[in-house]
Design a protein around this nucleic acid. Structure first.
Length: 649
RNA sequence: GCUGACGUAGCUCAGUCGGUAGAGCACAUCCUUGGUAAGGAUGAGGUCACCGGUUCAAUCCCGGUCGUCAGCUCCA
């Protein structure tokens, strides 16, 4: 047979000469289409366009609009960047350079510490190389040939990767474009000329193989596009995102303060931020009350022995503030890094019956962790934070239902806020037994139960092994911040280990002592991180129920301050959070000011309003809504607050 | 913690190739009493992050510390 039958995504098929390249097939569709095409997908795997087709198959052509097409585009861009680096710094040795969610990076080892100007030089070089439009050529080698090749270049990192490849199961391939060769499985773009608009975004250090004991290489991040408009839009999006950054908005809207005089990573809640936080806390308190939780309050420090029992100390001493030592070895305290040991003391303070369970203690408990200085960012990673914590003590037969109820609560919290873009991760143990406490059989049980609960609650989740806490597996709810960093918010953790360590028990209906299981859970995760993300989620335009200031009264002139004060009083009586702007300024000036502060409603009061005993309402972003009777306005916003509406009209 | 960058008024930033600094906004006072995104005038505000060194002289150069930012690592 000299023909191959090719099936296309639209269901049609055609015959071609055997050995035809994917590119030629694309050309047969149209020259213009062939120009757009980057790679082809054949029988489920992505291949180079120069790949020959020798069997009957299905083919799909991928362009930059396909995720897999983008990935190849950015991967090839990273090769081109490496090429550019190599031509500016010939001694450069390369680590890895993959495509990532929004672009690509490459890790490499050179003596020069790169500056912004150096990056620009590399970027310009990339444009030059792209214009040469060299083809990417794939060459397959045996392992010894490949080792020989990279030894000649004394490319130690590539050799390390090679040494770990299994030659019997993997084809070793290298790609060459314009004299630059890299170890790579591909696939790649047909040629470098496809990479048209490149922006290198920054340089930083990164440990070889992600291991802090290994050498630190330099990493350049970049992004590239086939059209200028796409690059411009991307850069514009990055700029827009910066405006929503909670660190910027937190300052502008007087939500929180980070002061070096207090200490880094120790946020201070300003009056406006405190309203926001307490509103969220009260909402959760009310939900928890309905679900049978009991609030408790515990101290911020605890005897160090508590943490020796729990196993947190000394294994995590690196990430704790050092102990307060009153008498060496006898009287030492720790700023609490978590609330659980305190809550366990409450449980253990008297005998418990199986009839008492589940017991659900809850506390907005502030904990202190000595996070590495380089990790601190705004409110999302801090050294003191309040966990909306709860420890639920259950019997084995209650565990699954209880986990489901907790998931239900977390889902409800996220829905009320309007978080839709989150991922759920089942964090399980891996084979590294040293990292985890307790009996492996109990772990397997706990993991199975979490999985079962996730299924029952219809969560779409991924399993990540090795991400569990040392005392048990967990379900984490993860969201991204404005610059794409992922943060864990809500969490549910199943714990068979701590009850053992603290010797917790209850009397069963058989008269025997039994061990309860503990669920650690936090829907917000921490108030700090949650509100950090919340600020970015709303871009500072909080829904009415959360807005620290819900309405501002603006008298048209000083003559209407009396009337305004009367309206302020009426609104305050109805628990509306209202401010009076009695500054000696024009209306337009004040409106602009409060629009920038993103205040939901402004009430403009002048002669017209005073005579008719009405108010004029202006809504943030929407403008003038016209004249209302005060009582109608109060009714309207009371409903809006009660419903916790979050849609910005 | 590591690599790199940065730190000037409350905020956003300019500036000094070494001779102790400037704008806009905000703030205060006065004029103005104005109707849906900036009315006018005047004024006050800075140990140029901190500590050392070099120098006749340091905000500027050098070293250290602290803080911030990006990334890595870590995150009970």
């Amino acid at each position: 047979m000299n023909k191959v039958k090719i099936k296309f995504p639209d269901g049609n098929s055609r015959e071609f000469e055997k050995g035809i390249t994917a590119f030629q097939i694309a050309q047969s569709i149209s020259e213009r289409f062939a120009k757009e095409v980057l790679v082809a997908k054949v029988d489920g795997s992505v291949i180079d366009l120069c790949g020959k087709i020798n069997n009957d198959t299905e083919i799909r052509f991928l362009t930059f609009n396909d995720d897999e097409g983008k990935e190849v585009y950015w991967h090839s861009s990273s090769h081109l960047m490496a090429h550019a680096i190599k031509s500016v710094y010939p001694e450069a040795k390369f680590g890895v350079g993959p495509a990532i969610d929004n672009g690509f990076y490459y890790d490499f080892d050179i003596k020069t510490k790169l500056s912004e100007e150096d990056i620009l030089k590399i970027e310009n070089k990339m444009h030059e190389l792209s214009k040469e439009n060299k083809t990417f050529e794939r060459v397959e080698l045996s392992k010894p040939e490949a080792i020989d090749f990279f030894e000649k270049q004394s490319d130690e990192y590539k050799l390390e990767i090679l040494s770990e490849l299994d030659e019997s199961s993997e084809t070793i391939s290298i790609y060459n474009e314009g004299g630059f060769t890299d170890l790579c499985t591909g696939p790649h773009l047909p040629s470098t000329g496809k990479i048209k608009y490149v922006k290198l975004l920054g340089v930083s250090g990164s440990y070889w193989r992600g291991d802090e004991n290994k050498k630190q290489l330099q990493r350049i991040y970049g992004v590239s596009f086939p059209k200028k408009k796409m690059l411009d839009e991307h850069l514009q999006k990055l700029e827009e995102a910066k405006k929503r950054d909670h660190r910027k908005l937190g300052k502008e809207l007087d939500i929180f303060l980070l002061s070096g005089n207090v200490g880094s990573g120790l946020p201070i809640w300003l009056p406006k931020g405190t309203i926001l936080r307490e509103t969220l806390e009260n909402y959760l308190r009310e939900e928890q009350r309905k679900r049978g939780y009991e609030p408790v309050i515990t101290p911020h420090i605890g005897n160090i022995n508590l943490y020796k029992t729990s196993g947190h100390y000394p294994y995590y001493s690196d990430s704790q503030f050092p102990p307060l030592i009153l008498e060496e070895g006898k009287d030492e305290y720790l700023l609490k890094p978590m609330n659980c040991p305190h809550h366990f003391q409450i449980y253990a303070s008297k005998p418990r019956s199986y009839k008492d369970l589940p017991i659900r203690y809850t506390e907005f408990g502030t904990v202190y962790r000595y996070e590495q200085s380089g990790e601190l960012t705004g409110l999302t990673r801090v050294r003191s934070f309040a966990i909306d914590d709860s420890h639920i003590f259950v019997r084995q037969d209650q565990l699954l239902d209880e986990i489901c109820d907790v998931i239900d609560l977390i889902k409800q919290v996220f829905a009320v806020i309007g978080f839709k873009d989150f991922t759920t991760i089942l964090s399980f143990r891996d084979d590294n037994t040293e990292k985890y406490g307790g009996d492996i059989k109990l772990w397997e049980k706990a993991q199975a139960e979490l999985k079962e609960a996730a299924k029952r609650m219809k969560l779409t989740y991924v399993v990540e092994e090795g991400e569990a806490a040392f005392y048990g597996p967990k379900i984490d709810f993860v969201v991204k911040d404005v610059i794409g960093r992922k943060w864990q918010l809500g969490t549910v953790q199943v714990d068979y280990v701590m009850p053992e360590r603290f010797d917790l028990e209850y009397t069963g209906n058989d008269g025997q002592k039994h061990r309860p299981v503990v669920i650690h859970r936090a829907p917000f995760g921490s108030m700090e991180r949650f509100i950090g993300i919340l600020i970015e989620h709303f871009g500072g335009e909080f829904p009415l129920w959360l807005a620290p200031t819900q309405a501002v009264i603006i008298p048209v002139s000083q003559n209407f301050i009396n009337y305004s004060e009367q309206i302020v009083k009426d609104l305050k009586d109805k628990n509306i959070r209202v401010e009076l702007d009695d500054r000696n300024e024009k209306v337009g000036y004040k409106i602009r000011d409060w629009e920038l502060k993103k205040i939901p409603y402004m009430l403009i009061l002048g002669e017209k309003e005073e005579l008719s005993e009405n108010i004029s309402v202006r809504q943030h972003r929407k403008g003038d809504l016209g004249s209302f009777a005060l009582s109608d306005f109060i009714d309207k916003i009371t409903i809006e607050i009660k419903n916790k509406d979050y849609t910005i009209n």
